[in-house]
Design a protein around this nucleic acid. Structure first.
Lengths: 234, 234
DNA sequence: ATAATTGCACATGTACTACATATTAATAAA
DNA sequence: TTTATTAATATGTAGTACATGTGCAATTAT
């Protein structure tokens, strides 16, 4: 009975959703999530002890601990030896970081992330003009000035420093951390290309706009600066 | 000896990094990561069996499985009953989704994510103008037209549909999924506010620009549309 | 000899027991 | 009342045992 045609299988799969062999740990993880939500635990609240949870769920302590281990990795719970477990605030980006490796991400997603960075930098303008300070602009200018006579390897570092400073000036820590994580991906994609490209507006130009120009000027400037990257999209 | 002043502790902590009580599972997780990287495993490659790994690391199978459970949750490894474990491609956003709950994210991060959404929508323009099609614009217009005579609850759904369509038109799946995840957060922040706000440019206006205007026109339009949100920032 | 079937070997999944460790709480001593 | 010691207890780790299901090989039938 091995020669069932693909058509038959597809027809069947419309009516019969495939049974995904969830392991107990998977199920327990979901159940614990639901439990935490339903009881609307707040960070700091104590949880029942392992044996109670295991018994309530009808699984071995082993399985329960595998599920707890996952939540612990995400920072959702913390455990002290005798006090038991407490709900904690997960670091939303910390978990993200764990899977952000250019080597294991497929090319399509790499491209998406590359574009995501472009979108972020283009959208930064409003925040920048709301929160920029004289001091920040001065520091940004110092970075931009440094790069005039640098060889190639150092220029890349400076490029990162400049754009990183922009994110920091946005006053949004999550955004800043996000950018740092995306950097390796961005680098990876850029280095896949043959020749280094250069936009019509350089870093000093952007600083000049930040000093005396309007938000719209800055958007145009950033667009021109990133133009080579946009040109590659389709 | 309990009355050491905070100053003393802070001074010390500059020189002596606190010892974070890593559990074995934490260590094993890191070691496995390093191992996978060092051996430069590719997706699909088979891993040694649990007993071998446990023995090599000098830990019980129990501890090893807690670490493996984490990697499995992230989608980094998959296991088939007899075949053993194989390296897999993690879903970079799947892990993110697990910790994105407005109730457990602190207010500062909530605000950051709210701003992140604004940044994304402002930065979308370039991608939109590179990839928009007649068909997409038509669909977008249909969504915008529907909302003219809708009561409040349905208008919110339509609002989501409209902006969601914009992300979809960007042709960037990761971005689109990202937006869907951020939606609950965004909603949460918006509903914290008193009165619903409305921008100078409405959805139909944005569609009109997409049809006949330039990228710069669209950026200005989107800026006007989101202006009430930007006004709240400081 | 080839194809199909059956059965065995083996890796993972789950359960249970046992003990180490650390921390809180209670008790005893000063 | 304060300090020191001890006991209780929840998590951390190890080890054993067995269930389950899959791939491979041996066996049988054509």
């Amino acid at each position: 009975m091995k020669d069932i045609s693909n058509m038959d299988i597809n027809d069947l799969s419309k009516d019969l959703a495939p049974i995904i062999s969830n392991t107990m740990a998977d199920v327990v993880e979901v159940r614990l999530r639901e439990y935490l939500k339903k009881k609307s635990f707040r960070p700091g609240d104590a949880l029942p002890k392992e044996l109670e949870l295991a018994e309530a769920l009808g699984v071995s302590r082993n399985v329960l601990r595998e599920a707890l281990s996952r939540l612990r990795m995400l920072g959702m719970i913390e455990t002290k030896k005798k006090r038991g477990m407490v709900l904690a605030r997960p670091d939303i980006l910390g978990t993200f970081e764990r899977v952000l490796d250019p080597l294991i991400i497929d090319n399509s997603t790499l491209q998406d992330i590359f574009e995501l960075r472009l979108v972020l930098e283009m959208g930064l303008a409003e925040l920048l003009y709301i929160r920029k300070t004289e001091k920040d602009i001065q520091e940004l200018e110092n970075i931009a000035k440094k790069e005039v006579n640098l060889d190639n390897s150092f220029r890349i570092k400076n490029e990162i420093a400049f754009h990183g400073k922009l994110y920091q000036m946005s006053g949004n820590d999550t955004l800043k951390r996000f950018q740092i994580m995306l950097l390796p991906i961005f680098d990876y994609v850029v280095t896949l290309e043959k020749k280094p490209t250069r936009g019509l507006v350089n870093h000093l130009g952007l600083v000049e706009i930040l000093k005396n120009g309007t938000v719209e000027d800055f958007k145009k400037g950033m667009q021109a600066h990133l133009q080579p990257h946009f040109d590659r999209l389709k």
